[in-house]
Design a protein around this nucleic acid. Structure first.
Lengths: 343, 343
DNA sequence: ATGAAAGCGCTAACAG
DNA sequence: CTGTTAGCGCTTTCAT
């Protein structure tokens, strides 16, 4: 409030200049030491470090990024943090990005339909060096415009934008493996519990259809949302519906499969004797006792790691051709689909 | 490369100045429109918006934050993104923070022991307006120094730093409720499966001890890590150990409780007839068929929301006194502990 | 190896 | 409602 306020360190205002003054060196020298680049005489270096420590200096990443035109951070936008699969994507991404010196910024609950585009916009606004997107895509032109200039890789689904890299599982193959496994067990009446109309779910559905068609068998499908309740309702629909009760069900994810199991139990159907069940994603719950669910593993963590790798490549060379990587899923057989494994 | 390059929009360089030029207005007017503050004539406003749209303008949050000294973002540092509880914390936090206009930046895998402190440092460096921490705390002096000047609230555990707000569940009460529930069912031999030595786990352990001591019964404890395998081993230890087999087990989290269930099944012990089991956290898996686990619900989502609320208050008034909020848990009784509920 | 000068893109405080 | 004048804290380029 006085005419000339005495120089004082404010609550959060320790700058490089302060550190330089304290250490008796130039501001640039401080910058070099903090960034750990170039050669700095060891004594000077420790002088600076000590001064920084004493003052509680914290580098202002904002200013550094603005001036340096790089943030060394990448954004990961995921659909649902509760979904194990996305957590595994994130693990794989972190495996690659952290050693490379990037800070991972996670934005959860990103639905591209509504407010999710805003989340993406926030990441772009933060000028992250790259963006990883794990959600469902629709033909939204604005996506291309929004991401123009920011290296991007999608996980699990392709964006539809030609210049964007993608890493995904072979979803059609996954359900084909599941269906063929059931066929090999002698099942003929195999139903499918499908999900909301996304790229991924469409691929999974088609895998089931292909396998059934190849075996000259009719298909039978019901839909469920991504919850246990949805799966339970789906099974009820199948049981109450016309025609014979299916002897096996392929589900588009583990949550719905677990719902099917719950419903089967309530309906006094033995699994797998009366009803064999296969899920998708091989989440941790699939291995729980009393669940013991056969499931397709899409190698989510590997997808995350691979996507992060592609992103790093694209950051290094923004003009290289876009690639789409497809990982081969594997079927993990458990008690819910195999008589031999039943206790 | 020419002497004087023609004005061209570079890959990512559309600035407010460009928009102003395109719209034929001043740069400040653009700023007002973009920030949506003050009064701007409708025609001018749409003129600016149209120009921004045409040029594909994206506000540079970095520059805005640097100049405005506020980022309108808060960091949420969580221990383990795979753990449902942290996902629910995040939900609650988002419930409050998003309507308030804050961008949530999630940092996962934050163990304060090792590299996690670096993650926190990254958030501080980004100059987030506040930090929410959901992990375990040890007496680390550096934490206080690191966070000085950044409003902070902890979730689930207190930090030990007096000036930091905290929101947590009453963990001792939770296990006391669980133990008393088992006592009410007539159990006398109740064992406890405890976790790694954290504040939270210590409180849960003490709740069990209090309840047993109050009933003049001896305690019996084994330890397990936070996985299903850990729980399974713990039960084996109890079964192979001296003395009679316990008739009930209280577990410090759901994962270990599910491990106990798995082991019980392998050992041909009926649940709850031979062994009653109670978990902690009431994760979604507890409600799965075949799991059907009685569990203590600490209201994680509410904890997240409350913590976010406190953070907002502290951002508004950094000097108000620190508070610690304790939420009362409730016991959710399912088939794993109650004969009456068994199918 | 170090200092000086310039500027990243924006907000803020005021005079017009 | 517009224009001016200052920075925010840092990196960078170029001298020295």
């Amino acid at each position: 409030m006085g005419e000339i306020a005495p120089v004082s360190v404010s609550r959060r205002g320790v700058t490089m200049a302060d550190v330089a003054r304290e250490a008796g060196v130039s501001r640039q020298l401080v910058s070099l030491v903090i960034r750990d680049v170039g050669y700095v005489a060891p004594e000077k270096r420790s002088l600076v470090l000590a001064a920084a420590e004493r003052l509680g200096y914290r580098r202002n990443t904002l200013a550094a990024s603005l001036a340096g035109r790089r943030t060394f951070s990448v954004g990961l936008a995921v659909l649902d943090i509760h979904n194990q699969v996305y957590a595994e994507f994130a693990d794989g991404v972190a495996d690659v990005l952290e050693p490379a010196g990037y800070q991972l910024l996670l934005a959860a609950g990103v639905h591209l339909g509504d407010g999710g585009l805003a989340s993406l916009g926030a990441l772009v606004g933060l000028r992250v060096d790259g963006i990883l997107i794990a959600t469902h895509f629709t033909d939204d032109v604005r996506l291309e415009q929004l991401l123009a200039g920011t290296p991007t890789v999608t996980l699990g689904e392709a964006s539809g934008v030609p210049v964007i890299d993608a890493v995904q599982g072979d979803d059609a193959l996954g359900t084909r493996l599941a269906t063929e496994h059931l066929l090999a067990q002698g099942h003929r009446d195999i139903a499918y519990v499908g999900g909301p109309d996304t790229q991924q779910n469409a691929a999974r559905r088609s895998g089931y259809r292909e396998a059934m068609t190849a075996a000259s068998l009719p298909t039978r499908e019901v839909d469920a949302d991504a919850t246990e309740t949805g799966g339970a309702h789906a099974l009820l629909t199948l049981l109450r519906g016309p025609g014979p009760r299916p002897s096996a069900v392929v589900c588009y994810n583990d949550a719905s499969a677990i719902g099917v199991l719950a419903c089967a139990q309530r309906e006094r159907l033995l699994v797998p004797e009366h009803l064999a069940v296969v899920g998708y994603d091989n989440t941790r719950a699939a291995g729980y006792p009393g669940v013991d669910l056969t499931s397709v593993d899409q190698h989510a963590r590997d997808i995350g790691a691979r996507a992060a790798g592609l992103l790093l490549e694209r950051i290094a060379d923004p003009d290289r051709d876009a690639v789409t990587d497809i990982l081969t899923p594997r079927l993990v057989v458990r008690g819910s689909s195999s008589h031999y494994l039943t206790h």
